[in-house]
């Protein structure tokens, strides 16, 4: 009885699935899915390497400082960095005094101590990076209806994040003629910019890194080409997303080596205890 019931229930589900499959297969066989421009022209991020990659990876502090300079002089006009505090910059190798000076260069929201009204004041090391726009509506209004996302977690919030940021910054180009020939309706709308590394190919952000020397690196640094600046700011954003990366990898090495040793000991002990006991 239980078996008959079970087979009936089984038939109910399998027939329903067969029905869904049959209709789906028919549609798929008779009406091939339309190709889309996104599907065909979207590209995976370029291959790029950073000092922080790999099991022994460490931040290149010099590069992080350059990347911070790019963020400060270019990105920060539109993009917030809300999870990072100025005090965190000491990890990039800046001294306490330098951090104070950097913080003081930013205006952060404050309160007038006599009237209680909102005003702004120079930042302190304990402050977080200020948001360039008061809220999303203001951000939208100033940026062609697109909200510039916060950058603090960007390299963790996208697949293959660091390479994605680097590719996006260096990937702006004219829309390929091939694309327009195949998908005449897919012309990049005015106000948007073609970039094959962006999920739907057209993004609102104008190319932020436009030419060599846009940011002036101090002596002893590589030439500030677009490629170099993109790489540097990507490295900086790896740090903002995961400031504990170095500590994580170093701790991991010690932990894993110890566990390897302990596991081998445990295995030898197991062999010992079971010695002579067939199983």
């Amino acid at each position: 009885m239980a078996r008959i019931l079970s087979i009936l229930v089984g038939l109910f589900f399998t027939v329903a699935l067969a029905w869904s499959f049959g209709l789906g297969f028919y549609t798929w066989a008779t009406e091939p899915a339309a190709e889309t421009a996104e599907h065909e022209f979207h590209r995976h991020p370029k291959e790029v390497h950073f000092a922080s990659d790999g099991a022994f990876g460490k931040f290149d502090k010099q590069q992080l400082q350059r990347g911070f300079q790019v963020y400060k002089e270019v990105c920060s006009a539109c993009h917030s960095l809300s999870h990072v505090a100025f005090r965190d910059l000491e990890q990039l190798g800046y001294s306490e005094g330098q951090v104070k000076a950097i913080a003081a260069g930013f205006q952060v929201p404050g309160t007038d101590q006599t009237t209680g009204e909102a005003n702004s004041r120079p930042g302190m090391p304990t402050d977080y990076f200020p948001k360039p726009f008061a809220n999303d509506i203001a951000a939208r209004a100033a940026n062609n209806n697109a909200v510039p996302p916060d950058l603090s977690l960007m390299t963790k919030a996208r697949h293959d994040g660091p390479a994605y940021v680097y590719s996006l910054l260096t990937g702006y180009q004219a829309q390929p003629a091939e694309l327009l020939k195949k998908f005449p309706d897919a012309k990049t709308p005015s106000g948007l910019h073609y970039n094959p590394y962006f999920a739907n190919l057209n993004l609102a952000m104008a190319p932020p890194l436009t030419g060599e020397g846009q940011v002036e690196y101090g002596a002893g640094n590589p030439r500030p080409t677009v490629d170099q600046m993109a790489k540097d700011v990507s490295a900086f954003l790896i740090w903002t997303a995961e400031p504990k990366l170095e500590k994580r990898k170093q701790t991991g090495l010690a932990v894993c080596l110890f566990l390897l040793f302990a596991t081998v000991l445990g295995y030898m002990s197991y062999r010992n205890i079971w010695a002579g006991k067939k199983h």
Binding site: V255, F258, L259, F261, A262, L265, G266, M268, S269, N272, I273, A275
Partner: peptide, 19 residues
């Protein structure tokens, strides 16, 4: 020698616990 290995294994577990 066998006892030593067992003691070492238990000690390693103890170190892990403290860690």
């Amino acid at each position: 020698r066998r006892d030593f290995i067992n003691i070492a294994a238990v000690s390693a577990a103890g170190v892990a616990g403290v860690g």
